[in-house]
């Protein structure tokens, strides 16, 4: 896959969709192209986050360690971005990501990601927008969950 194709892929990622092609090309160029075979791990839960990944090809699972063992919390496919939270707020990886099929991805290092945001405020805005919408989605899910559990406990009380 050539640089230009990668740019096309990046454009389909919501976080990057509003950014000019030339800047995306720079982002793609300064990022590493990495490949994983099925079963290999992109990163482990608990590690320091040093990069975000854009999946270009293949599928991967997001897994969280719980006392009951590994639990799959999400599936990733083409055009997904993963790992950007850890590099934005300097926390350890909150989940493990493992390739299911052979995966090709663009690895955007923390330094580059942050530098891009500094240089191109529109990108920062896009990232904020995506994060905010994700937050509101999570909040909505959480309140639904809460309402559900209240209902359940209310029913239990009856």
């Amino acid at each position: 896959m050539l640089l230009n194709d990668e740019v096309k892929m990046l454009r389909q990622v919501p976080m990057f969709s509003g950014i000019a092609a030339a800047k995306l090309k720079l982002l793609a160029f300064t990022s590493e192209r990495v490949a994983y075979r099925g079963g290999e791990v992109l990163f482990h839960q608990g590690e320091d986050g040093d990069a975000a990944y854009v999946i270009l090809r293949g599928q991967a699972d997001v897994l969280v360690n719980t006392p009951q063992g590994e639990v799959k919390v999400a599936e990733l496919s083409e055009n997904s971005v993963v790992g950007e939270i850890a590099i934005l707020c300097d926390i350890a990886r909150t989940a493990t990501v493992r390739a299911v099929t052979p995966v090709e991805a663009l690895r955007i290092s923390k330094e580059n990601f942050c530098k891009m945001m500094m240089d191109f405020p529109e990108m920062m805005f896009e990232v904020m927008r995506v994060l905010a919408s994700r937050l509101s989605q999570t909040t909505a899910e959480l309140s639904a969950e809460l309402a559900e559990s209240r209902k359940a406990s209310a029913q239990g009380a009856h």
Binding site: L3, A22, K25, L26, F29, T30, E111, N112, K115, D119
Partner: peptide, 19 residues
């Protein structure tokens, strides 16, 4: 291609280190 990618960046930009 490289000029197109980098021309707008200041010379001490960290991206140059990756190039």
């Amino acid at each position: 291609t490289v000029i197109g990618l980098f021309v707008d960046l200041p010379p001490d930009h960290p991206f140059f280190r990756q190039m």
